[in-house]
Design a protein around this nucleic acid. Structure first.
Length: 490
RNA sequence: GCGCGGAUAGCUCAGCGGUAGAGCAGUUGGCUUUUAACCAAUUGGUCCUGGGUUCGAAUCCCAGUCCGCGUACCA
């Protein structure tokens, strides 16, 4: 008995054995416990929404609750989108079917019913079953019907249990799907073409991050999972595609945190003949559109577990714009007058830790992240950041120490960078090689060759989709917006 | 990687040196319009793992595992 799971305790074994015994009893009755196709007229949620008495219907779903009352029984049939109550009584379905329902059907089983709709005395829309069809027997007990799954480890490792038992999780992932779809439609309506570029690259470029490495056997060569699609999308600009976007996964072999999953969803879009200012307008318009469509407006309340408002984001336009230089001057008016050594000292005084191997611009960046980015919740476009931070962006014509970019910060996180893209192949080569010397970004010769054929001036944008969904839904942890977040192997 | 916290029945949790508990789920009985159905009875435990302290450890100490939070890494 249940030797399939030697780690099960005796009590768990008993629960499993009971279900196995029911499975056997069903087979004794000549019923296939794992049935096939079942034609439905309605989804449970849809039937509930369009309910009227006296309809002949056929619905299927998982049994999520069961109330047996002697010679009759009520049960809830649920799918992802809703639930409808079923009713059986002994007289209507016959002794055999009723006994099967009473003795061998459990919470968790998938069931199809045919019958007529009616409303009970307490006003519950219901289906009186003439016929019951077992679609799939569940062999394990479901989580608590009232509290659902609370253990985060179960939620993430066995997401299906979370989805079965927690309505908020069900709704959140439906919302995520709709947001992704709306983003695609939004870009397509503006003439952008969705493309797919390699996830496996021989030079992992477009960002400074440690890649995952793998091996292609037939080609006998190493390959890297991409850290960004940027360099391939720019090849498409060279190829004459003037408006493209890609919405898919990036992979970075770095730490895991509340804001970081090793694989995450990124949108990148490139718009020939535009610049970073136009890209800023684009992301502002898109995020407001999504907030109005999916978050009930431009003021988004983030709530804690008890439903208390923890924070309200205000996305009202126009969004604040400030240069990197002036933001740091807001922390300390003399910031840019200090020597590098003084900046390290000042950072420490401000409570920002730096490490000895940090370059001067990295010390400043650290102060920016801790004292500005992490404390900024309403949207802020940070413009004209130091050129060392972004080697793929165009230098500002008036101040060649900074690049023509914005970094959009919302909800204490960087949500979206946008650049005026660098299209000078010689300057691009020098800046990448300078970076490569510091082991931050490998130089991609094929990309540089492509630029030599001529890339149109273009605006580029990246949007961290997981973080965008966090800010739209109020999720505090990236794991709550990724169906199957990465966890350590048990 | 480092610091802090957590792990008790299938699920949700209480217990915090002195005989392992509750609700739900399960099982048995009753009940033909209930709905967190109800009523009665009942099964179920490697108290995460391994050491230690103690007359006695779920409880205190040490180490490990996994999870969470913070931190580090991080265009």
């Amino acid at each position: 008995m249940t030797d399939s799971d030697p780690s099960a305790s005796e009590s768990e074994s008993q629960l499993l054995a009971v279900r196995r015994a029911k499975l056997e009893a069903l087979r004794q009755r000549g019923i296939d416990p794992f049935g096939g196709a079942f034609a439905t007229t309605h989804d449970p949620g849809q039937l509930r929404a369009d309910f009227a008495d006296g309809l002949q219907v056929s619905v299927a779903g998982r049994i999520t609750a069961r109330r047996i009352m002697g010679k009759a029984a009520f049960f809830d049939l649920s799918t992802l989108t809703g639930r409808i109550q079923g009713y059986v009584n002994k007289k209507a379905v016959g002794d055999e079917a009723f006994e099967m329902f009473r003795d061998q059907i459990d919470i968790g089983d998938w069931l199809g019913i045919r019958g007529e709709t009616f409303t009970t005395q307490v006003g519950e829309p219901s289906v009186k079953a003439d016929e019951l069809t077992l679609l799939s027997k569940s062999l394990r007990p479901l989580p608590d019907k009232w509290h659902g799954v609370a253990d985060p480890e179960i939620k993430y490792r066995q997401r299906y249990l979370d989805l079965i038992s927690n309505q908020r999780s069900r709704e959140l992932f439906i919302l995520r799907s709709r947001i992704l779809s709306a983003i695609r439609v939004w870009f397509e309506q503006r003439g952008f073409l969705e493309v797919e570029t390699p996830m496996m690259q021989d030079v992992p470029g477009g960002a400074a991050a440690r890649p995952f490495e793998t091996w292609h056997n037939a080609l006998d060569m190493p390959l890297f999972l991409r850290i960004a699609p940027e360099l391939f999308l720019k090849r498409l600009l060279v190829g004459g595609y003037t408006k493209v976007f890609e919405l898919n996964r990036n992979f970075r072999n770095e730490g895991i945190s509340r804001r970081h999953n090793p694989e995450f969803t990124m949108l990148e879009a490139y718009w020939a003949f535009a610049d970073f200012g136009q890209m800023a307008g684009l992301v502002e318009e898109l995020v407001c559109h999504l907030a109005e469509t999916f978050a009930g407006g431009l003021k988004i309340e983030h709530k804690d577990e008890e439903g208390n408002v923890r924070r309200t984001l205000d996305l009202s336009r126009p969004w604040r714009r400030a240069s990197y230089r002036e933001l740091l001057a807001g922390i300390d008016p003399q910031w840019w007058d200090y020597s590098p050594g003084e900046r390290v000292q000042r950072a420490r005084e401000l409570g920002v830790e730096t490490s000895p191997q940090m370059e001067d611009y990295e010390v400043t960046q650290q102060v920016f992240e801790k004292l500005i980015e992490e404390k900024t919740f309403d949207p802020l476009f940070v413009t004209h950041v130091p050129k060392e931070l972004i080697p793929l962006a165009r230098l500002n014509p008036d101040d060649p120490d900074v690049v023509d970019v914005y970094e959009l910060v919302i909800n204490g996180q960087e949500i979206s960078p946008g650049y005026s893209e660098l299209n000078d192949p010689d300057l691009q080569r020098r800046r990448l090689e300078h970076q490569a010397g510091e082991e931050t970004q490998a130089s991609d010769e094929d990309f540089l060759t492509a630029l030599e054929y001529g890339m149109p001036p273009a605006g580029g944008i990246g949007i961290g989709i997981d973080r965008l969904i966090m800010l739209l839904t109020g999720a505090e942890n990236i794991r709550d917006v990724v169906l199957f977040p990465q966890l350590k192997k048990r």
